[in-house]
Design a protein around this nucleic acid. Sequence first.
DNA 1: CAAAATATGGAGGTCATCTCCATTTGTCAA
DNA 2: TTGACAAATGGAGATGACCTCCATATTTTG
Lengths: 204, 204
Amino acid sequence: MTADKPLRADAQRKREALLAKAREIFDAGDFFDLRFDDFARLAGVGTGTLYRHFPTREALAEAVYHGEVAALCDRARQLQATLPAAEALATFLRGMVDHMDAHEGLARTLATLMADRSGALAEGSRALEQAVTDLVAAAVRDGTVRDDVGAGAVMMALHGIGAAHDRPGWRAEADGVITLVLDGLRRPHAAQAAIRTPSRRKGA
Amino acid sequence: MTADKPLRADAQRKREALLAKAREIFDAGDFFDLRFDDFARLAGVGTGTLYRHFPTREALAEAVYHGEVAALCDRARQLQATLPAAEALATFLRGMVDHMDAHEGLARTLATLMADRSGALAEGSRALEQAVTDLVAAAVRDGTVRDDVGAGAVMMALHGIGAAHDRPGWRAEADGVITLVLDGLRRPHAAQAAIRTPSRRKGA
DNA sequence: CAAAATATGGAGGTCATCTCCATTTGTCAA
DNA sequence: TTGACAAATGGAGATGACCTCCATATTTTG
């Protein structure tokens, strides 16, 4: 399902233009306030061409999402190769929040699309889910993380973070969710592992 | 902002009809596949009447949501009055999952609406959030729950559970999220409190 | 019961979405 | 290079959902 289209030179160019403009609009968060036709105009193509390349809004989103996910997966692999499993997981999750924070409009747009039925993004999410699954599995393997809660639960939590992007104290709450997930993931009976959480003896 | 409308007898009847039908459609999960006009017809009223009562889809959703939330809040108060704080919180959260599971279409529909911008449901959610906040606060007060992560994080997690309702292993993953949240909420240094989730092996 | 106030419903206007095809652009073989 | 074929373009216009408006019907009040 990857590359079996010789795609004419011309077409390639238009496609790129559309994606570039899409990323821009996404990041600004205006994706839903824009008539799809106008979007074509903005990208410098006719509506027919837009629809030829991306039959629906979701299809376009999927394409943009793919790039995002690829970058995140690279990061995950990199972390996994250079850090202890538990730390890699923690760093990755914290990094996800940073990323969503930095690309607010994009994160928000994608979360909205994700929530819509049709699961248009489910496909694109698979790679991300695999990355998270790998990170968790590695941590389970070395004993720092419990084995009775799957990576799917972590994905759900991330989903919630993305979907709730308009809450007032978003950043703090997002960090809170990650904290809960990470602490919750530690094997219930295990002593304090090397997960980080410096001196958090007392609260506050 | 509650009740200052003498609302004519006739109108009251139509309004009820609309809400009843809405609940039905919501529960079936067909809310978004239905033309708003057709919805009016289904409920036995004209489109004009529909729009008079509920100017937008979201307004209608809000009204339905209100009933849901009220019931959940009652439950929360009841639990809080009869159980130790930590247990009340745990029971409530587990109950939320049960509820979403039983009313799949409704939960899904509401999550979708929630994710949409406009925060139409933010208003209706406030009561629910207050209930969760109270439950958490009580548990913090009696020392069974950490005080450095707010109830907002718990709301986010719930949000994620609702929004991801189309995942294949939803139920198991939702339970997993709750487990992580509850375990994560225990004061990091505190010994094993009485929360202890009763052996829930990973199903599938 | 009559009049005033309130609510109804559905015909039709408005506007975003998407299709269709005559025209343009790119590719390839001779 | 050039001719011929395939691929791609773009925008005019059909389609259909959303919402408004108001002549008519229903309820309430004096």
